[in-house]
């Protein structure tokens, strides 16, 4: 198995706050890893380190063969990583001044210098895939939250990433729109995309994840197959967290 992500003894601080403590984690090609934990536990920070949106202070991080140096060193590796890693944000972060289709075409045009017709065809195909082909020429503000998040997924896929990061992709959505976004993610997982997903959707985690990681105060305290973590958690912190989130 090829390792897409490899973290060894990674530490991250916000000022004096130690947010990630000695993180050891690997993600294999085709694997879906779901990261759960309370808010403020460091789970978002963890995946934001993978594409360099957050710098780390010490340890080792290799993404698809590119090694990132601590404190934002090795900008060349970072540029490579960002071309190969897609990210979906909680707040969608679509570009409001561009149409849906132009949102998707921007990175292929600018980064890969793809010719207009090819980028356009890719955008059409991806919009079809996420089920919103009819909205191509609208501006993001005219779409529902669920549709916007599906555009955001299509936008990331347009760069043909080797790894997709999802940072609480359904947390900003109205309940009735969560399903349509999770469906797209489920499809993606089925097609073999390597994914790291931070989410509070325990049903999705149980169903789609190959591995679930529970993170508590910046430390990985439990890790395993979803059935094991959810039904038979070993660490008492995991037990307490799951009893809180699964109770309601």
């Amino acid at each position: 198995m090829t390792q897409i992500v490899q973290m060894r003894g990674m530490n991250k601080y916000f000022g004096t706050l130690h947010v990630l403590k000695e993180i050891d984690l690997t993600v294999d090609a085709g694997e879906v890893v779901v990261i759960i934990g309370a808010s403020g536990s460091g789970k978002s920070t963890l995946i934001r380190c993978v594409n360099g949106l957050e710098e780390f202070e010490s340890g080792k991080l290799v993404v698809d063969g590119n090694e990132l140096a601590p404190k934002g060193g090795n900008q060349k590796a970072l540029a490579e990583i960002r071309k190969e890693v897609g990210m979906v944000f909680q707040q969608f972060n679509l570009f409001p001044h561009l149409t849906v289709k132009k949102n998707i075409m921007l990175a292929p045009r600018k980064v890969k210098e793809a010719p207009e017709p090819i980028a356009s065809a890719t955008a059409d195909r991806l919009l079809n895939r996420v089920g919103i082909a009819s909205q191509a020429d609208k501006y993001p503000s005219h779409l529902s939250g669920g549709q916007q998040q599906r555009v955001a997924i299509a936008r990331a896929l347009a760069m043909e990433p080797r790894l997709m990061l999802f940072d609480e992709p359904t947390s900003a959505l109205d309940p009735e729109m969560i399903g349509e976004v999770l469906d797209v993610m489920r499809e993606l997982a089925k097609e073999g995309m390597t994914m790291m997903v931070v989410t509070h959707e325990m049903g999705f985690a149980r169903e789609v994840a190959d591995r679930v990681i529970y993170i508590h105060e910046g430390q990985i305290v439990e890790e395993g197959k979803p059935a094991d973590v959810f039904d038979n958690p070993q660490n008492e912190r995991t037990q307490a967290f799951l009893s809180r989130v699964l109770a309601h």
Binding site: R82, G86, M87, N93, L94, F95, L106, A107, K110, A156
Partner: peptide, 18 residues
């Protein structure tokens, strides 16, 4: 302009100036 816009651009592989 929201910081998320910059993050989205960078995460897509665009350079800082792009």
């Amino acid at each position: 302009i929201d910081k998320g816009q910059t993050e989205a651009g960078l995460s897509l592989g665009l350079s800082r100036s792009q």
